[in-house]
Design a protein around this nucleic acid. Sequence first.
DNA 1: GATGAATGAGGCTTCATTCAT
DNA 2: AATGAATGAAGCCTCATTCAT
Lengths: 217, 217, 217, 217
Amino acid sequence: MSSKNLLEAILAQSKLSKKETVKQQKIVETAIAMFAEKGYANTSTKEIATASGVSEGTLFRHYGTKENLLLAVILPFLKESIPSLAEELQEQVNPEQFGSFEGFLRALLTNRMQFIKANKEIFQIIVKEFLYRDELRKGLPPLFDNDVLKFLNQTLDLFKARGELVDLPNPILLRMIFTCIGSHFVMRFLLLPEPVVRDDAAEIDHLVRFITNGVQR
Amino acid sequence: MSSKNLLEAILAQSKLSKKETVKQQKIVETAIAMFAEKGYANTSTKEIATASGVSEGTLFRHYGTKENLLLAVILPFLKESIPSLAEELQEQVNPEQFGSFEGFLRALLTNRMQFIKANKEIFQIIVKEFLYRDELRKGLPPLFDNDVLKFLNQTLDLFKARGELVDLPNPILLRMIFTCIGSHFVMRFLLLPEPVVRDDAAEIDHLVRFITNGVQR
Amino acid sequence: MSSKNLLEAILAQSKLSKKETVKQQKIVETAIAMFAEKGYANTSTKEIATASGVSEGTLFRHYGTKENLLLAVILPFLKESIPSLAEELQEQVNPEQFGSFEGFLRALLTNRMQFIKANKEIFQIIVKEFLYRDELRKGLPPLFDNDVLKFLNQTLDLFKARGELVDLPNPILLRMIFTCIGSHFVMRFLLLPEPVVRDDAAEIDHLVRFITNGVQR
Amino acid sequence: MSSKNLLEAILAQSKLSKKETVKQQKIVETAIAMFAEKGYANTSTKEIATASGVSEGTLFRHYGTKENLLLAVILPFLKESIPSLAEELQEQVNPEQFGSFEGFLRALLTNRMQFIKANKEIFQIIVKEFLYRDELRKGLPPLFDNDVLKFLNQTLDLFKARGELVDLPNPILLRMIFTCIGSHFVMRFLLLPEPVVRDDAAEIDHLVRFITNGVQR
DNA sequence: GATGAATGAGGCTTCATTCAT
DNA sequence: AATGAATGAAGCCTCATTCAT
């Protein structure tokens, strides 16, 4: 990633992306599909261009760099998903409205499951690249630092106060919970070889139960 | 990976490995370090050769293929670790000797933590490649199928009988527990950017508590 | 040769060849000259590129493979030469118009001599590769099977009926005649070290006489 | 071929080849088989060494160069075959004892067919390399210049005097005859894909008839 | 004499990127 | 804006040959 700072990149991106041509959309779509399937490093710009019905020249005219194309894939996703995450959480997953941590957790998981399902390929790309890119590993977490993190901390505090949560420091709790949730999604969307027909609701039930018990007092 | 079957590859490997030259050892060491740091795809054979103080020809004389070099890195690890895992489990982590599932889990985690610590780089390599290689994703799980899986099932049954575990099917329990453990190790050894000084014992305690609670009746 | 079937390769080639760049033409010209002189195996793609005033990248951009470059050299020659052979034979070498087998043979040889002279280098390439490539040895003869072979059989039958030819099976006669003719061309265009000034007409006369006598009744 | 002069090489070879070890014999045998099958350029010294059950070092200890190994394969064959050819011809194919050129030719062909059959692989090697090596193309014919050529010229003169041969210059006759014979052997031993069961005697009969007629007065 | 580890030059190929049209 | 030809650096791999043991 050419830009060290993910935040800056997102902002820069905002200014660039005036109007996307049809071809640009096609390029990004194709790139998403191919990066998700074969990984960024194993996909050549030529492949993307051909599969998009576009010349390689055009691809580079628009994105300048293969890296930039990756950014053009990832950044809008982050730019949209993270701010909206905070909102959505407070609207749809408002802990006040749930009688229990379990209810909150189920709503959160259901919400995120839908979101990732709707953005499955970009999720796959980000996870894969996460292992190889320092900028992602270092740049991604801070994006959540403001609103989302505050919301989560408040929520944890709330349920701690209600006596539903073990009294561990929030960072430890959060890491435990979200490592568990994240790995569940990675398992679900990247690792399990055959996309077996599964009952998402049941799966979420098990996971909710597991975590709820896990962090109980 | 040239060989479709991981098991066959391991067996084939066994027969080949006669005596390792000093240079061979250096090559493998270097490869382990560089694959772990930058990933297989981002490490060139030339880099490995140079860093090993060896010509590229020598590298290929011994391993024939970059892929084979990766196998030479991974297979001995698997070959040694998996069979011994079963033994070690039954010796050191024998559930009979533990009064509780929690005790068993702590022993297991401590044992594995030590093991991965001692093989940190290879663990990093395998995790990274796991996302990109079907053969690994499909070939690795079967390696645990025999002894280890049997042992784990017996253990779960034992603690279920004692009423310490929730009455879910073993596959679901196992996936929940080991996804959680696995992601913990991935977090610990791959993702957290700065190797903060940490208190392994405390971490394991939290994790043990989390899982134990999570799967309790 | 990547394609097992020469016929398929020729057809595939037809569809690909859109417009040739100037550089492409130069590459093929150079390849023809160098393959003819030193043989396919002893000519490196780098040599061809340099001698063509082109980067190696360009060479591979257009032909993808060294083998494909060989095909690009050989196939157009075969594609043009074989179908036109049948036509030319029936037009210019129509046996009906000749009073004798000798006349027919002289016309045929003169015609082929001119053709090979005009394509001397490709002829050299094909002969050399013929010894090393099964696909050529197996794929080339069938190309003549339809029209040309039928024409030749009819011709032999005609002259047999006129009592000018010995009554041996056509396959045996054909092999005898064309082994003799072929080896003459190989001698003439590949083996004789110094391209002495020669009197082609006289040579053909001798050869015609030799064969005509050889196969007379 | 490192040595420019085939004759010198043969003489040099004579002095070197003191006693062949068992290993040397094995190496040469293997080299013959592999060169014949795949061609000199497509056979690696490593392959030869492995297939001979010998280390590559040993191979180079004895022959110094891959080229030398080729010489060690070809030269003894030439050294033995050519001088003996003259003798054999005068003994077994003595034209005086044959009533006709046809008889002489049949004896000659039968004799050479047996010889090549007995040395099929080396014949294949020489033919293949002949196309690629100037030294062979230039160095081989002179080897026949002395005794054999004299014998052939005498023979032609004899049958010319008897009125059995057309009155063309000997060089032209010789080239015609031996191009025809040579190409027959090449056809027989290199080109025809499937080693069909054939009736050598019948084949020779056809060929003898063809040539005899071809060169008759 | 034999071994086989080591070499380094060179081979084919891929690929992100530039540039004239 | 779009094209696609051109590039050259870099990648993986092969192979004849040398040399210490």
